[in-house]
Amino acid sequence: MSVPILEIRNVTKSFTRGGETLTVLRDLNLVVGEGEFLGIMGPSGSGKTTLLNLIAGLDKPNRGDVRIGGQAVSAMNEAQLATWRTRNIGFIFQFYHLLPVLTAFENVELPLLLLPISAQKRREQVLNALDLVGLSDRLHHRPGQLSGGQQQRVGIARAIVTDPTLIVADEPTGDLDARSAVEIMNLMDELQRGLKKTILLVTHDPRAAEHAQRVVHLEKGQLLESAPTEAALATAVSAAQ
C-alpha cells in the first residue's frame, strides 16, 4: 500500500436514542493509502454514513482516533474542523445538495470563498473544475435548470475545486438513473486515475463498487475486507505491464 492518507484506529461510535445506547461502529480499524479508491458497502443501518461522517469530521467518535494526512481529526474543535474541511475534504452527496439560488459556477465557487486566493485564481479553479466534469457550457445554470446527472457533476466539481486530500462520496449514484450513474462513476475513475485523488465511496450499488480498487464491508460495526475488485486487478495488471 502507498503512504497512508487515512488512518482509523480502534474507533467506536454509539448513539443514545430513547434512553437506549446503540453501538454503530465497534473498535473499527481502517487504513487508506494515498491515491486509493476505496469502496465501503454494507446493509442499511450498518454504519456506513456514520463512518463517513467521522472521516469528514462531521461527527466525533466516542473512542479511538481518526487521522487524515497525519492530523487527528477527532481532536479538533468545530471552528478548526470547518477550516480543515475546506482544504482537506471534498464531499459528494447522494442528493447533490446544491444551493438552489446559486448558479453552477457559484455553487462550485462556494468552498473557495473561504480560502485566501485572488478572484482571478478562484475563477480559474472553478472553470477548471467545471471543465473537468464537462459542464463548461452550464456555468450560469441554476440547479433547477440542470438534470440529476448534471447536478451531481456540479457536486463533484464543488468537491474537487479546493484540491482536497480526500474525496468522500456518499451514495453518489443513489439518486440517478443507470446511464447517469455510469457517467458519474466513470468521472470518479478519471479523478482517481488522472488526478490521483484518494476516494472513499459509500454505496449500496455493486456496479458502482466495482469501480473501487478495494471494497470493505461494514457489518455489525465491523469491517470485513472483500476480494480485490476488477478495477483493482486492472490497476495491478497495468502496473505490472
Binding site: 469528514a56 471552528a79 470547518a82 475546506t86 462556494l110 468552498p111
Partner: peptide
C-alpha cells in the same frame, strides 16, 4: 437546515 449543513461541510464555520 440541510443547506446550513452543506455550508458547514464545505468549511463554513458555525459563526459564518
Amino acid at each position: 437546515r440541510t443547506e446550513m449543513a452543506v455550508l458547514k461541510v464545505l468549511g463554513y464555520s458555525p459563526n459564518q
